[in-house]
Structures are given as C-alpha cells and as structure tokens.
C-alpha cells in the first residue's frame, strides 16, 4: 500500500453545442438584450499601438463545408509582444476577442493589431501569432491553434519548428491579401487539415 495521492483531475469537456451563441455571443443569436455589455467584442480599444490588420476566413469540416455555427476566441499580445497584465503592456490592447461566422458571407472576421514577437522566459522568442480556440456543435473539446503570418519571419518559432510533416506548416500561416488584410482558413479534418495544438 502507498499513501493515497490526492489529486483533482481536470473536469471533462463537453461540446458547446449548437446554441453556444446565446451564452457567449447573445447578439449573434438574436438576443441582444441579454447583457448590457457583451464580452470580447473587440481585442483593441481606440489608440492601440501597432499595424491594424483584418484576418478573415472560413471554418471548414471534413467535407469542405463551411461551419456556420462555430464560435472562435482569440488571444494575443500587443505590438511589443506583451500580454495584457504584463508590466508595460499597451492598455488599449485587451487581447481577447470572440467572433462567430457571418451567415451571409460564411466567414469570420477579426479586426485587431498585429502582435509583436513574444519573448520566452528561457530565452528566444515566439514569432508574432494569435492564439485561437474554436468551439461548435460536434467539437467535443475546444480546438486550439495559432495564426502566424506568412509575411513575417517565422523560422525560429519554437512551436512551428516542431510541426511535422513540414508541409503542414502552411496551415498555420495567414496569407496576406494587401492593405493589412489576411486570409486564414481552418480545416478541421481531411486534406490540408489545420495543425491543432495541445499546449
């Protein structure tokens, strides 16, 4: 016999289901009067430093159909690579945003500023990136991925260096369309499946 190891393992995830919007984005579900202030409407306030960018794309299932019910959350650093709450971070960068799929265009859009490279405590840095967390009906545990930028230097990024096979790297790079616009599609399964992270 040994001492009983007292641990509290993490509570199990369950799907967010088809009606997730009423809880997280009530205006999107037609319930704009639910809360006075909806959370995560924009990751930046007026005056945020850095280059304005607009990332848009589709979330596609294994059959290539765009998923219209997904909710995406993003989390990012400011233009200097500091996260909200860190000393010296830009107070006009909240870092967090929630967005859904526009039923007409079948796309999501994230308007923000381009984050800076993030210094790592052990030395080195992560290339500019935005973390995404995707939930929807049929997704049993939220899917994590990152948006990197095709027009930035990403060769030294410690996460991207671990991606195998190397062809899959392109699934994590937003493609510049000019004028600060980028395209980033998320493919849940099948050819060109997005690299999802467990970090």
């Amino acid at each position: 016999m040994v001492q009983k190891l007292v641990t509290h393992s993490e509570t199990a995830s369950q799907t967010a289901g088809p009606y997730v919007h009423i809880g997280l984005m009530p205006t999107h579900a037609g319930n704009s009067s639910t809360f006075e202030t909806e959370l995560g409407v924009s990751p930046i306030l007026g005056g945020a430093k850095g280059s304005p960018i607009e990332i848009s794309g589709q979330v596609l299932d294994a059959t290539g159909n765009p998923m219209l019910d997904a909710v995406i959350e993003s989390w990012q650093a400011d233009a200097q690579g500091l996260f909200p709450g860190q000393q010296g971070a830009d107070r006009n960068v909240k870092g967090f945003c929630r967005f859904a799929i526009d039923p007409q265009t079948e796309r999501f859009t994230l308007k923000t500023i381009k984050p800076g490279p993030v210094a790592l405590p052990e030395g080195g840095e992560q290339s500019p990136h935005i973390a995404l967390w995707i939930v929807a009906r049929g997704i049993n545990i939220g899917l994590s991925t990152r948006v990197y930028f095709e027009d930035a230097d990403v060769d030294q990024d410690p996460v991207l260096r671990r991606v195998q096979p190397r062809e899959r790297l392109q699934t994590l790079k937003a493609k510049p369309l000019g004028g600060g616009a980028y395209n980033f599609d998320v493919r849940l399964q099948g050819p060109n499946e997005t690299v999802f992270l467990d970090m």
């Binding site: 299932d61 294994a62 009906r137 049929g138 997704i139 049993n140 849940l188 399964q189 999802f196």
Partner: peptide, 8 residues
C-alpha cells in the same frame, strides 16, 4: 463529431 474532429 465525425466530420468535425481532427484526424491528425
């Protein structure tokens, strides 16, 4: 979940 789950 069948078409909405990563296979990799």
């Amino acid at each position: 979940s069948v078409t909405r789950s990563p296979s990799m």
